[in-house]
């Protein structure tokens, strides 16, 4: 069902956890549909210095969460905002069609975390 890359991120997820006193946090999904993802970020010099995720969900939900953290670590906030759910799925070498919607929301969680940071830090949100 899943390719090797997806299975690798699912079985050996990168950046699992929650950053204490995070600069920004974003959560998407709800228990009704079965996938909930939460991303926390630490921002330094307008860049994502650290990022962690926690996910309740299926293999695709966990793998996309892991992949998005890997993709954006070190990027500027503007660059990270450009990373789409589709790009995450592509970086994983593709997902089964039925997983493209509700299980592929990790980039949305990231964007929410960035928006949360910007709302809390209006002075240096340009970056």
């Amino acid at each position: 069902m899943y390719n090797d890359k997806v299975m690798d991120h699912f079985m050996n997820p990168r950046n699992v956890g929650e950053i204490q006193d995070a600069d920004g946090a974003g959560q998407v999904g709800n228990p009704v549909c079965g996938d909930v993802m939460r991303i926390t970020i630490r921002v330094e010099d307008g860049k994502i210095a650290d990022i962690k995720f926690r996910t309740f969900g299926c293999g695709a939900a966990i793998a996309t969460s892991s992949m998005v953290t890997e993709l954006v670590k070190g990027l500027t906030l503007d660059e990270a905002m450009e990373v789409s759910n589709k790009a995450v799925a592509e970086a994983l070498g593709g997902l089964p069609a039925q997983k493209m919607h509700c299980s592929n929301l990790a980039a949305d969680a990231l964007h929410k975390a960035i928006e949360d940071y910007r709302a809390k830090h209006p002075a240096n949100s340009g970056a």
Partner: peptide, 11 residues
């Protein structure tokens, strides 16, 4: 509780 079935099945 707290986890999802498919991820258990895959493991």
């Amino acid at each position: 509780k707290f986890i999802e079935g498919e991820s258990i099945l895959l493991n």
